[in-house]
C-alpha cells in the first residue's frame, strides 16, 4: 500500500519534470481516439444504423446546442437541488447513526439486520412507493437519493468506529483517557477515512438515484431530458446529457477520493 503510493507520486513527479506523458496516458488516449474514429465511420460504412448510434461530431454539435439553446441550466438546477438535498439529509442522518452503531454493540446487533438488508437490496425498487407517498415532484427523488446514499455512509462510519485499532485504545487507556477522550481523540479521527470512503461510495448511488428517479416520473430535470430525447430518438442529445451526468459524478468522486487519499497518507505504514 505504502509502496504503491510512493511509486505513483514518484512517477507523477518524473513525468511532470520531463514533461513527457506516461505510457498509460498515451495508450489510454489512443484507445479513446480509436473508439471515436470507429464510432464516427461505422455508420457511413454501413456497419451500424447511424440513427441508433449517432456520431461523435453530431454529439459535439448537439452539446453546443444544448448549452446554448436548451434550458440546460433550468434542468440542471432541479437535478442538482434534488441531489444536494438528498445527500445532505443522508449525511445528517447517517453520521450520528453510524457513530451510535459503531460504539454500542447492542445498538449494532439490533439495527444491523434491517440495515444490511436495505444496503444489499436495490433501494431503487422503493421508487414507486416513494411516488405514492410523496408525489411526482422533487420529493420522491430526494427520498431515493437519501436512501441510496445513507447506507454506505452509515456502514462505513460504523466500521471505522468499531474496527478502531485496539492498540490505540489500550495506549489511550494507559494514559488515563476517559471514554469521551477516547471517542474524541482516537475514534473520531481514526474513522475519518472510512467515513470518506462511505461518502465516495454514496456519491455514485446518489447520482444514479436522481437520474433513475427522474426517468421514472418527472416534469423537469436532467433525467427528464434524457427520457425526452430517448423517446424522440435524439441519440446525440441524449448522449450529451449522459456525458454531463458522468462528468459530474466523476468529478465529485475524484474530489472525495483526493481528500480521502490525503488523509489515508497519515495511516500508511
Amino acid at each position: 500500500m505504502a509502496d504503491m503510493t510512493a511509486e505513483t507520486t514518484a512517477t507523477r513527479q518524473v513525468s511532470f519534470s520531463a514533461l513527457r506523458p506516461s505510457r498509460e496516458a498515451v495508450v489510454g488516449t489512443l484507445a479513446v481516439l480509436a473508439f471515436l474514429v470507429l464510432w464516427q465511420i461505422a455508420p457511413s460504412m454501413g456497419w451500424v444504423n447511424g440513427r441508433f448510434t449517432s456520431r461523435p461530431t453530431e454529439v459535439f454539435f448537439a452539446a453546443i446546442d444544448v448549452f446554448r439553446k436548451d434550458d440546460f441550466l433550468f434542468h440542471a438546477r432541479i437535478s442538482l437541488t434534488e441531489f444536494v438535498a438528498g445527500f445532505a439529509l443522508a449525511i445528517i442522518v447517517s453520521i450520528p447513526l453510524g457513530v451510535l452503531l459503531g460504539t454500542s454493540k447492542i445498538a449494532r446487533y439490533l439495527i444491523d439486520p434491517p440495515l444490511m438488508a436495505l444496503y444489499i437490496a436495490p433501494t431503487l425498487v422503493l421508487l414507486p412507493i416513494m411516488v405514492i407517498w410523496l408525489g411526482i415532484d422533487m420529493a420522491p427523488k430526494i427520498a431515493v437519493v437519501f436512501l441510496g446514499a445513507v447506507f454506505p455512509i452509515v456502514l462505513n462510519t460504523m466500521a471505522g468506529m468499531s474496527e478502531a485499532d485496539p492498540r490505540f485504545l489500550r495506549m489511550a487507556r494507559s494514559f488515563g483517557a476517559t471514554k469521551l477522550d477516547i471517542f474524541m481523540r482516537v475514534l473520531v479521527p481514526g474513522s475519518l477515512p472510512a467515513l470518506l470512503t462511505g461518502i465516495r461510495l454514496a456519491v455514485g448511488r446518489a447520482v444514479l438515484g436522481v437520474i433513475v428517479g427522474e426517468l421514472f416520473v418527472s416534469q423537469a430535470g436532467i433525467g427528464y431530458q434524457i427520457n425526452l430525447y430517448g423517446s424522440a430518438m435524439r441519440i446525440d442529445r441524449l448522449l450529451v446529457y449522459v456525458l454531463i451526468v458522468s462528468a459530474f459524478g466523476y468529478t465529485l468522486t475524484i474530489l472525495v477520493r483526493s481528500v480521502e487519499n490525503r488523509i489515508r497518507d497519515w495511516r500508511s505504514k
Binding site: D165, R167, F168, S174, F175, G176, R185, G190, I263
Partner: peptide
C-alpha cells in the same frame, strides 16, 4: 494512573 507510563511495541503512535 499518572504514576506510571507505558512504552508500547510499535504501531501505538496515532497516525494522524
Amino acid at each position: 494512573g499518572p504514576d506510571r507510563a507505558v512504552v508500547f511495541q510499535e504501531a501505538s503512535l496515532l497516525p494522524w
